[in-house]
Design a protein around this nucleic acid. Structure first.
Lengths: 206, 206
DNA sequence: TATCTTTGCCTAACGGTGTTAAATTATTTT
DNA sequence: AAAATAATTTAACACCGTTAGGCAAAGATA
């Protein structure tokens, strides 16, 4: 039958619809309320149908992260090609990364395992204590002529970002990597961390 | 009755047990398999009992993050008090933050909404493409005499950490903050990001 | 001591989840 | 038209968070 192709195309279509419907649900209600039954509802089927296109929910999510990585790479490439100077290119590429994260917030969340935290209702005083300790110590080493709240904030966030970023990257990858790779990471991580901390500290004092 | 105190103490004890059992389960099987019934099993009760100590599961998780923040602040404080020079103190404090993240991995995960990512089985080629684009561009601006794989790796991770960290911090906090705070963030974020990127780039070329 | 009230704890249930097997309907092939 | 294949649904399982109702032991009251 010549309709083999057409049928295959229809199958591909619904596969695509499943992915699109999933992303729509997530954009409207967040990852936590994405369920197989809800996806099926959106494409006018019942839940078991989805299992003819994906082995299970995890496989579906995996495909969505794959799509995310493709989009991210495209945007980075596009940003690169807007400049010729290498340094300008590099900065633009990371800016593209940043912009992607917020343009495709949901994809970024699943790509890098970020939960839109459940426990942020009332950040109690205990939450503040740690950041105050750090903030105050930064204030201490900032030269008097630069000691504005905004400047200290900036530096505080820079510290926090680089440390939390490094932690976060390691944690989401920890399971994937074999033990040897983990070992390989330990050294390079300490190196990155020390370098970055000293860099920021010296930039403050200069 | 004088046994009022003793009874109150027992109640406090089981509350404590619930929290400890929860953390144990998470350490053994991860956050995704923490359930009320499993917690109850561990303390030889049935599930509904837990609701006499916590309004719901979310409240229980919130308390665990609170405990996490207290421990984190303690470790930071402790690190600070081991030095006298402010710069040394600051570095030690951030190192304590780093160490805490891995010593109390599970607490850190819930404090900052990090999922030990489900989709890390086989990081397919698409995952690699984005990082290769960035890595290659970094290589390009590294002076020839420093152009080792290790050096480029270090710089790549430094870039990635600061950008991902900033993204990640913003995302987990986005829901909590009011719109005005979000606006306040937008500016300071771009500032932090640009500063950091330029800082790393110039540190590479120097 | 006997009744009443409170407390502690459990059983059963509701609606939801991911997932699978069987039954049913629709389509194609013979 | 009958048989075989495919597409889709229904029903079920085991789990989840959560709530209501009941049972039994303990405490208070008389």
């Amino acid at each position: 039958m010549a309709s083999k192709d057409r049928i295959q195309k229809l199958k591909d279509d619904t596969r695509c619809n499943i992915l699109a419907a999933s992303l729509n649900i997530v954009k409207e209600e967040g990852w936590s309320s994405l369920s197989m039954r809800k996806i099926a509802d959106k494409i006018d089927y019942t839940a078991p149908i989805i299992y003819e296109y994906f082995n299970n929910k995890e496989a579906l999510l995996k495909e969505l992260t794959r799509i995310g990585y493709i989009k991210l790479a495209n945007e980075i490439e596009e940003a690169r090609d807007k400049f010729t100077d290498a340094a300008e290119q590099l900065e633009a590429m990371w800016m593209a990364y940043w912009n992607f994260a917020f343009k495709e917030k949901e994809l970024y969340q699943i790509m890098f395992g970020i939960e839109a935290n459940c426990c942020v209702g009332n950040p109690c005083s205990e939450v503040q204590r740690a950041s105050n300790l750090l903030w105050d110590k930064i204030e201490e080493i900032v030269p008097a002529d630069k000691r504005t709240e905004e400047y200290i904030d900036t530096k505080y966030y820079t510290f926090w970002s680089v440390v939390h970023g490094l932690v976060s990257i390691n944690m989401t990858r920890q399971l994937a990597a074999g033990n040897n790779e983990q070992q390989w990471g330990k050294d390079i991580n300490k190196q990155v961390l020390k370098d970055a901390l000293e860099g920021i500290i010296s930039s403050i004092r200069r």
